[in-house]
Design a binder for these strands. Structure first.
Lengths: 349, 349
DNA sequence: CTGAAAGCGCTTACAG
DNA sequence: CTGAAAGCGCTTACAG
């Protein structure tokens, strides 16, 4: 009776689809394991002849070093995690790309995850990344309590929060000047003669939404205008909710003559509603949009630089990983008012 | 003389910033390693009392399982890689998010990388992902030779190509019907009376660009129109190049009366150029744009469903990982013509 | 119900 | 210049 074959000859059986290992390469080249390791990692101290034999075995077997074993010994994974809200949102694409580029410059890869604005999912994702021992974590918070990350940070996971500050822990964060940007945008409308100005924003528990609302209120107060309740609306950014909010403040006995839109998703719907109005309504929008200058009128915006935010956060992350102890810092990046027409329309009445 | 302390008491020194391991938990709980493993993984066969003691030790030490060690034994990383062109491009955000969602449903995380349309960088990235032993790889090709992935695929890395087919290897791919979509779009212009129709596309070595040009030519031939050299322009999608191409075909003795734009980046510039023209020029554009319906006229587009493409590719990837042997397949997803005005303008002359 | 031993594929620290 | 042994933090396959 023939023996049952247990494994392919010369290749140790394993779960990576029968991949050759350094051991297989060593056996084939007739050298020790460490010599293979030296060749694979380009370490000195190998004769050209030995190196040639090892390289030949590597090529013949199609060997590729298993970095996940390497990582286990070395302790650093050269991987950073990015927890954001939704990769499909045009704001996060450039941000993510910027983080990726900085990571790449440091030889690291980027694991992306979307929280879908759900605090539980944010936590689940962030901790899953920590379990994979990412070296660092860039988090765009969905929740407002990040104490769950304390043990991880203490254990050495570099962490930077972006777009919104961390909740209940002291950590680096990189933000846009949401308050200042909104204040400037609303002041711009005031300067063009508006007094009844509406504000449509995201859910109030989101830091950026709250800050922008605060900027709106500050600008109104600066102008000595008492804000009526009907002028502000915060909530989900789905088209239905935003449309309803916009239509309400544009109707009634004393409708608003201008709208400040709190973010890019809100803006898209607001523009649609304004296009349906019989009279011209001024608009200044937080976040820039592609094609914003081609609409009629062009959309005046308070622009954030998503790439700069991502770059700044990633730089900060790798500085933490660089080993120098640095105290947590709050870095605020300026916004930029871009006038294109919609924010310079005079009041219709 | 006091002894030099070598390590913190009770915690084994290691490179993960002194993280507790299962061994530490076992020691503290006074149980064996395997019992800790059972509790951590929710395996049965542990008395409630033992479980409590272990859990207490876990909490006290702030233990979190090192998945990267786990992976080394189990053989699957529950990680998939996505190599795309540029995460900042609005086409890839939704695509990436869709891949992420499918991965998440299978308990896997997603590592993203941008090739920046550079074949060398694509290869470097894809192989780096393989070295980390991703279970599967979704690749949007930048290069046209993917034989470098053959050993990886043979070793069991599930692979699906997206948006463009693999070069020189037989592998799954998920594409839009670029040929059919472009042909339909151009036929639409012909149906509205145009005969001198320009085509501005991406670099000819990119599969989608070539296919869309082929669709353009087919539609023109269907209509019995001989295409003049001056009507087609392929190349980089930077604004300067596209502007120049558009202006050239719109000038001279017999300018085009309609333009077919080959992708979203081209379209952005073409719209700007057309807006500057004194006469109306018809436009049909490949790829939808966020505010396309709000421009005047609205932009008629041949839309791809980026999310559906990503979802289809990821489904296919996990089917490969499911173990059933399936022959490589080429899946082509239909495009959708959305008429909004710009494609229905009659010829200006 | 519980745990000691071996091993995943590498690197580290040594010794020759 | 080269390699055997130990170990990274887990899981697997057993044995009690």
């Amino acid at each position: 009776m023939p023996e049952t074959p247990r494994r392919a000859v010369g290749i140790s059986a394993n779960r990576y689809g029968n991949r050759p290992t350094m051991k297989d390469v060593a056996a084939r080249a007739g050298v020790g394991l460490k010599t293979v390791s030296r060749v694979v990692n380009g370490e000195p101290g190998v004769t050209p002849e030995t190196e040639r034999r090892v390289q030949e075995a590597i090529d013949a077997l199609g060997f590729r070093r298993n970095d996940s074993a390497r990582v286990l010994r070395k302790g650093r994974t050269a991987t950073v995690g990015l927890v954001l809200e939704d990769l499909a949102d045009p704001f996060y694409g450039p941000l993510s790309r910027a983080v990726e580029e900085v990571a790449r410059a440091h030889g690291a890869l980027l694991i992306n995850g979307s929280s879908a604005e759900d605090p539980d999912r944010e936590q689940e994702l962030a901790l899953a990344l920590c379990a994979r021992r990412v070296d660092g974590l860039v988090v765009i918070p969905a929740g407002d309590d990040h104490r769950y990350l304390e043990p991880e940070i203490r254990a050495g996971v570099a962490t930077v929060f972006v777009d919104r500050p961390a909740g209940r822990i002291d950590a680096d964060c990189v933000l846009s000047d949401n308050f200042g940007g909104a204040r400037e945008g609303v002041a711009h409308l005031v300067a063009h003669g508006h007094r009844r100005i509406g504000f449509i924003g995201d859910m109030p528990r989101i830091h950026t939404a709250a800050e922008r609302l605060r900027g709106y209120r500050a600008a109104m107060e600066d102008a000595g205008i008492a804000v009526e309740d009907a002028w502000t609306s915060l909530g989900a950014t789905d088209p239905w909710r935003v449309r309803r909010a916009a239509e309400q403040m544009l109707s009634g006995p004393s409708p608003v003559t201008a709208v400040f839109s709190g973010n890019n998703r809100v803006t898209v719907t607001v523009i649609r509603v304004l296009a349906e109005q019989s009279r011209a309504v001024a608009l200044v929008a937080f976040d820039d949009l592609e094609l914003a200058d081609l609409l009629q009128p062009g959309v005046t915006v308070v622009a954030q630089d998503a790439a700069a935010i991502g770059r700044t956060a990633a730089d900060r992350l790798f500085r933490q990983l660089g080993g120098t102890q640095i105290a947590p810092e709050r870095i605020e990046l300026p916004t930029r008012l871009i006038t294109r027409g919609s924010g310079e329309l005079p009041p219709a009445d």
